[in-house]
Structures are given as C-alpha cells and as structure tokens.
Simulated scan of single mutants.
Amino acid sequence: MTGLRFDDRVAVVTGGGRGLGRAYALLLAGRGAKVVVNDPGSSLAGDGADARPADQVVAEITAAGGEAVACTESVATPEGGAAIVAAALDRYGRIDVLVHNAGIVRRAPLREMSVDDFDAVLDVHLRGAFHVVRQAFPTMCDAGYGRIVLTSSIGGLYGNHGVANYAAAKAGIIGLSNVAALEGAANGVTCNVIVPGAVTRMADGLDTSAYPPMDPELVAPAVTWLAHESCSLTGEILIAIAGRIARAVIAESPGVHRPSWTVEDVGEHLDAIRDTADPLIFPVVPDAHAQHIGYSFAMAEQTAKGVRHA
C-alpha cells in the first residue's frame, strides 16, 4: 500500500474492540502499525467483562497480515492505565500512538442523576484519558516523538439532554488535551481531539432511520491522520461526522473594556460584549493562555491612554 504508513510504529487504541475503536485499530494496522487493542468487553453501561471483542479485532488484524495484541484491562483505574501502556512496551518496546476512545453511557436527567453514574462515566472517559496519557506521555517525551488523540463529543462541545456526566467528561478531555499539547510541544509529542459522530452501540434506542451514512469507517481516516508523523497539528479539535470533517475552535468576542463597571453597564453593553462578528481565536500552542491575558491587558492599557472600546 502506498501513501501514509505506520511501519515500525506502535499504536494503542482504547475501546478498540467495537465500533469506532475497532475501525481505528483496523485502519492503523492496515497501514503498518503494530496495535494494542484494548477493550475489557464491558456492557454499554460499563458492567461485566468479555475478552472476545478485543480478541476478535486482533484476529482480524493478524488474518490480514498485521501485528496486534489484545489487552482487556480497564482505563478506569490507574493500574489499568499502566497495564495498557505496559502491554505496548512489553510486547513491542515502544509506544508511538495513543488513541483514547473507550467510553460508556449512563443516561439520566440531571435532576435524577446519581453520584455513582456520574463518577462511573468520568472514570472511563476523563479519568481514563488521564490514566493512559499519564503513563504514555513521559515515554513519548523521552523518545522525542508521540501522537495522542483523545475523544470528545458533540455533547462535550454543546451538551445534550440526559448526559450531564458524559458531557462533563467530554468537555474535560479538551482541557487535558490542551495541556498535553503544550507540555509535549518541545519533545515532538502532539495531542489533538477528535469529535466523532457514528452509528455505534451508543446509538442504541435512537431512531437513526433518517440518518445519512454514519459508519465508523468515515471517522477513522481523520483519527489516523492525526496519529501520523506527518501531522503537525497540536492542541486542535477535529470533527468527523457523516462524511464531514471540520475544525472546532474556542473563540472569544473582542469584548468591551471600561475602567469601571456597574451591574447596569453590563446589561447596557451586552450586544457589544457578545458580538462575535470579528472573533478572536488563540492557538493553544505556543501559548494561548498568555495571548488571552495579553489581549485583555492591552485593552486596559489602551483605555488608560484614552482609546475607547465600544
């Protein structure tokens, strides 16, 4: 096969036994990567265990002439995260790519959601991301190379009914990715976020009859590109849904500066405060944090010099 290859690269895919993770694992392996297919085989709610999903994907990869190993540890614990990364290091001696895709769903209206259901979802999605990133990141930095892809969702960007736990976890993923991108930049380690939309078992119970094609295979090329050595993006968010690939950004309005504010002033200037006709987008890398502060401070300095802002 010509084109972008992953020969001699080692990839870990969490939640790799079904759906999106399976599509990622198969495409990475098909492009030459050695793949650790991680999946404990739990139910959609995170209950139980079944080695068959991970084993079946490994069997598909090896039948096609690729190399893969199954790992059924759970990302939900620090010990599980360590074991998942160790599976790559022990079997192949390195880790070049980490795709955190593992996830569960426990739906409930916010007014009824239990603490246990909230924590269980964060344990897999957000804490799970930390558990595997924390183990892989130092090794990647020491090697001077790494590609990390973390999974958010439309719910993480915009929210959705009945999934406060899922939305909170997926929003947190973006913050974690940004820090990994910043701290990895000097060591050749990138970290980006994929926001996938596909019909998988997470769509169980939804009427998808009017949906356009939304197979996981439509998402996998975007994830695989983010995982490739030729990808220089870091600290970014790509959306992949129904054949559409796009970039999502955190944007600010230019805003309004005044030397002092009253409560009434805020209401009177609300239209200008909220005006995003000329949005500000600060790239995470090299230092959006400082750019954000610097822009605000510059407005204050200009006001002090008599320059009026709205």
Score class of each variant (00 low, 15 high):
residue 54 A to V: 07
residue 207 D to W: 00
residue 240 A to Y: 01
residue 84 I to H: 08
residue 16 G to P: 11
residue 1 M to C: 13
residue 35 V to W: 03
residue 116 D to M: 15
residue 40 P to K: 07
residue 58 V to C: 07
residue 304 A to N: 03
residue 308 R to N: 00
residue 162 G to W: 07
residue 111 R to G: 01
residue 21 G to C: 12
residue 306 G to I: 08
residue 72 T to G: 11
residue 242 A to K: 08
residue 29 A to P: 01
residue 232 S to K: 08
residue 235 G to L: 06
residue 281 I to F: 12
residue 283 P to H: 14
residue 230 S to M: 06
residue 171 A to M: 05
residue 110 L to I: 06
residue 232 S to Y: 00
residue 96 D to L: 13
residue 197 G to V: 07
residue 178 N to H: 10
residue 33 A to Y: 04
residue 115 V to I: 07
residue 60 E to S: 13
residue 148 I to T: 04
residue 198 A to L: 08
residue 301 E to Y: 01
residue 29 A to Q: 01
residue 133 V to G: 04
residue 207 D to V: 03
residue 161 H to N: 11
residue 297 F to D: 10
residue 139 T to A: 11
residue 263 V to E: 01
residue 256 V to F: 04
residue 76 A to L: 03
residue 131 H to V: 12
residue 207 D to Q: 07
residue 279 P to E: 02
residue 298 A to V: 03
residue 96 D to P: 14
residue 228 H to W: 05
residue 168 A to D: 07
residue 293 I to T: 05
residue 168 A to I: 05
residue 9 R to V: 06
residue 57 V to S: 09
residue 308 R to W: 00
residue 65 G to T: 04
residue 104 I to F: 01
residue 179 V to M: 10
residue 164 A to K: 12
residue 95 I to M: 06
residue 244 R to Y: 00
residue 228 H to F: 01
residue 223 V to G: 08
residue 211 Y to A: 12
residue 234 T to N: 09
residue 178 N to Q: 10
residue 10 V to M: 10
residue 17 G to N: 06
residue 146 G to A: 05
residue 145 Y to G: 01
residue 203 A to M: 14
residue 163 V to K: 04
residue 187 N to A: 15
residue 207 D to L: 08
residue 227 A to N: 05
residue 110 L to R: 08
residue 117 D to Y: 06
residue 140 M to P: 05
residue 180 A to S: 13
residue 252 E to P: 00
residue 12 V to E: 02
residue 124 V to R: 02
residue 122 L to E: 02
residue 24 Y to T: 02
residue 163 V to D: 00
residue 269 H to Q: 09
residue 194 I to K: 13
residue 80 G to F: 00
residue 211 Y to T: 03
residue 257 H to W: 12
residue 202 M to H: 02
residue 120 A to C: 09
residue 143 A to F: 01
residue 115 V to G: 04
residue 239 I to H: 07
residue 167 A to V: 14
